[in-house]
Amino acid sequence: MSIQHFRVALIPFFAAFCLPVFAHPETLVKVKDAEDQLGARVGYIELDLNSGKILESFRPEERFPMMSTFKVLLCGAVLSRVDAGQEQLGRRIHYSQNDLVEYSPVTEKHLTDGMTVRELCSAAITMSDNTAANLLLTTIGGPKELTAFLHNMGDHVTRLDRWEPELNEAIPNDERDTTMPAAMATTLRKLLTGELLTLASRQQLIDWMEADKVAGPLLRSALPAGWFIADKSGAGERGSRGIIAALGPDGKPSRIVVIYTTGSQATMDERNRQIAEIGASLIKHW
């Protein structure tokens, strides 16, 4: 067993022997301040990774656009098919120029040779490549099948209805392509620590998230040296922004954090800054 596999296998073990965790309302004060600064709703939840206990939450059962955070769930569904012998990570998928959609920095470079399922998941999570996500959605049967996968996990809230990039439209009061912070946090925890996926697939999923290259201005910008984070960000229309993450000190994750916002007129930089400040408060009061 590799060191990384050992780390993920012992996530519940280490967490069980940690000192009790206590909620700190100071972080919620910052979440509410972010709402004021952005002029928009902000949803927040913080779960203990081992027990699933909610440590703090704000608007945990209000719907927010998922945006690209759905790509972690998508690759979880792909990995479940791999575990069941219905898919192979090494299978190569070929596609054409007509398949390319807006923001496809990886797939646009491989029109000639195609990409493997493993490479597509890596591109979808680490670079948020939209064509990679659409190609992977095709392998599982489309958005409705991802929703069905989530329902089978016990998540009857999260739903995907459309493809990239239309799913980022974020129309107010439109339930399409949305989740709730509580539902997303619980589902992410199941994917990373539950028995739904094999140990190898859980490790692969967290490795992809740990290698995320496009979430630097968010929670990662607030992390002290030595902290662990595996995350996936999302951005959408109407001032929408979000991030889902597993993080913790001492090089291992111990909490799940989900943050979503929508309806702001603020710039992307300002949305990023507010999420980073929430992260800084979380870490300060850990």
Score class of each variant (00 low, 15 high):
His24Phe: 08
His24Lys: 09
His24Glu: 06
Pro25Ser: 05
Leu28Trp: 13
Leu28Ala: 07
Val29Asn: 15
Lys30Tyr: 15
Val31Phe: 13
Lys32Ser: 11
Lys32Arg: 09
Asp33Pro: 10
Asp33Ala: 07
Glu35Thr: 08
Asp36Thr: 13
Gln37Asp: 08
Gly39Trp: 03
Ala40Asn: 07
Ala40Trp: 03
Arg41Asp: 13
Val42Trp: 14
Ile45Gln: 14
Glu46Ala: 07
Leu47His: 04
Leu47Ile: 03
Asp48Ile: 13
Leu49Val: 02
Asn50Cys: 01
Lys53Glu: 09
Ile54Asn: 06
Leu55Asp: 11
Arg59Tyr: 04
Pro60Gly: 08
Pro60Arg: 04
Glu61Arg: 01
Glu61Thr: 03
Glu62Asn: 08
Glu62Trp: 14
Phe64Cys: 02
Pro65Ala: 04
Pro65Asn: 08
Met67Leu: 14
Met67His: 06
Ser68Gly: 15
Ser68Trp: 08
Phe70Ile: 03
Leu73Ser: 01
Cys75Thr: 01
Cys75Asn: 00
Cys75Val: 04
Gly76Asp: 09
Ala77Trp: 03
Val78Leu: 10
Val78Gly: 01
Leu79Val: 02
Leu79Met: 02
Ser80Met: 07
Gly85Cys: 03
Gln86Asp: 12
Gln86Ala: 07
Glu87Leu: 08
Gln88Phe: 07
Leu89Pro: 01
Arg92Asn: 09
Ile93Ala: 01
Ile93Gly: 00
His94Trp: 12
His94Asp: 02
His94Pro: 12
His94Met: 13
Tyr95Cys: 06
Tyr95Met: 14
Tyr95Arg: 08
Tyr95Lys: 06
Ser96Gly: 07
Ser96Tyr: 06
Gln97Phe: 05
Asn98Ala: 10
Asn98Pro: 07
Asp99Arg: 09
Asp99Thr: 10
Leu100Phe: 02
Val101Pro: 13
Glu102Ser: 00
Glu102Gly: 14
Glu102Leu: 00
Tyr103Ile: 09
Tyr103Gln: 12
Pro105Phe: 05
Val106Ala: 07
Thr107Gly: 03
Thr107Cys: 01
Glu108Arg: 07
Lys109Phe: 06
His110Gln: 02
Leu111Tyr: 07
Leu111Asn: 11
Thr112Trp: 06
Asp113Tyr: 07
Gly114Leu: 10
Met115Phe: 12
Arg118Leu: 11
Glu119Lys: 01
Glu119Trp: 05
Glu119Phe: 01
Cys121Trp: 00
Ser122Pro: 04
Ser122Asp: 05
Ser122Trp: 11
Ala123Glu: 11
Ala123Cys: 01
Ala124Cys: 03
Ala124Glu: 02
Ala124Met: 06
Ile125Ser: 07
Met127Lys: 14
Asn130Ser: 15
Ala132Leu: 05
Asn134Lys: 00
Asn134Thr: 03
Asn134Asp: 02
Leu135Arg: 04
Thr139Gly: 11
Thr139Met: 13
Gly141Asp: 01
Gly142Ser: 01
Pro143Met: 13
Pro143Gln: 06
Glu145Asn: 12
Glu145His: 12
Thr147Ser: 09
Phe149Pro: 03
Leu150Met: 13
His151Gln: 07
Asn152Ala: 12
Asn152Tyr: 15
Asp155Val: 12
Val157Thr: 10
Val157Ile: 14
Thr158Val: 10
Thr158Tyr: 10
Thr158Phe: 04
Leu160Asn: 01
Leu160Lys: 03
Asp161Glu: 01
Trp163Ile: 10
Trp163Ala: 12
Glu164Lys: 00
Glu164Cys: 15
Pro165Arg: 01
Glu166Met: 06
Glu166Phe: 08
Asn168Pro: 01
Glu169Asp: 02
Ala170Tyr: 00
Ile171Glu: 01
Pro172Tyr: 02
Asn173Ile: 02
Asn173Arg: 10
Glu175Cys: 02
Glu175Ala: 04
Thr178Lys: 14
Thr178Tyr: 11
Thr179Ser: 15
Met180Tyr: 07
Pro181Ala: 04
Ala182Asp: 12
Ala183Arg: 00
Met184Asp: 10
Ala185Arg: 01
Leu188Arg: 15
Leu188Ile: 15
Arg189Ile: 14
Lys190Val: 14
Leu191His: 12
Leu191Val: 08
Thr193Lys: 00
Thr193His: 00
Thr193Val: 07
Thr193Met: 11
Leu196Ile: 07
Leu197Cys: 02
Thr198Arg: 00
Thr198Asn: 03
Leu199Ile: 12
Arg202Ser: 09
Gln203Cys: 08
Ile206Arg: 07
Ile206Lys: 01
Asp207Val: 01
Met209Arg: 06
Glu210Gly: 14
Ala211Arg: 05
Ala211Phe: 14
Asp212Ala: 13
Asp212Glu: 15
Lys213Glu: 11
Lys213Arg: 05
Ala215Arg: 15
Gly216Lys: 15
Gly216Arg: 13
Gly216Ser: 14
Gly216Tyr: 15
Gly216Asp: 13
Pro217Gln: 06
Pro217Met: 03
Arg220Trp: 01
Arg220Pro: 13
Ser221Gly: 15
Ala222Lys: 15
Leu223Arg: 10
Ala225Trp: 09
Ala225Glu: 10
Ala225Leu: 10
Gly226Arg: 12
Phe228Asp: 15
Ile229Leu: 15
Ile229Asp: 12
Ala230Gln: 11
Ala230Tyr: 05
Lys232Asp: 07
Ser233Phe: 13
Gly236Met: 04
Glu237Cys: 10
Glu237Val: 00
Arg238Pro: 00
Arg238Leu: 05
Arg238Ser: 01
Ser240Ile: 03
Ile243Thr: 13
Ile244Tyr: 09
Ala245Tyr: 10
Ala245Ile: 08
Ala245Thr: 09
Ala245Leu: 13
Ala246Ser: 11
Ala246Glu: 06
Leu247Tyr: 12
Leu247Thr: 10
Leu247His: 02
Gly248Lys: 05
Gly248Trp: 06
Pro249Gly: 07
Pro249His: 12
Asp250Lys: 12
Gly251Asn: 13
Gly251Arg: 11
Lys252Arg: 06
Lys252Leu: 06
Pro253Ile: 11
Pro253Asn: 15
Ser254His: 06
Arg255Thr: 14
Arg255Lys: 12
Ile256Asn: 08
Ile256Val: 10
Val257Asp: 15
Val258Pro: 06
Ile259Glu: 08
Ile259Thr: 14
Ile259Met: 06
Tyr260Ile: 11
Thr261Leu: 00
Thr261Lys: 14
Gly263His: 12
Gln265Val: 13
Gln265Thr: 08
Gln265Ala: 10
Thr267Val: 09
Thr267Phe: 06
Met268Pro: 15
Met268Asn: 13
Met268Cys: 15
Asp269Arg: 12
Arg271Cys: 08
Arg273Ser: 12
Ala276Phe: 12
Gly279Pro: 13
Gly279Asp: 10
Ala280Cys: 13
Ala280Ile: 04
Ser281Asn: 15
Ser281Ile: 04
Ser281Thr: 10
Leu282Trp: 11
Leu282Val: 10
Leu282Ile: 04
Ile283Asn: 05
Lys284Val: 07
Lys284Leu: 03
Lys284Pro: 05
Trp286Gly: 02
Trp286Asn: 07
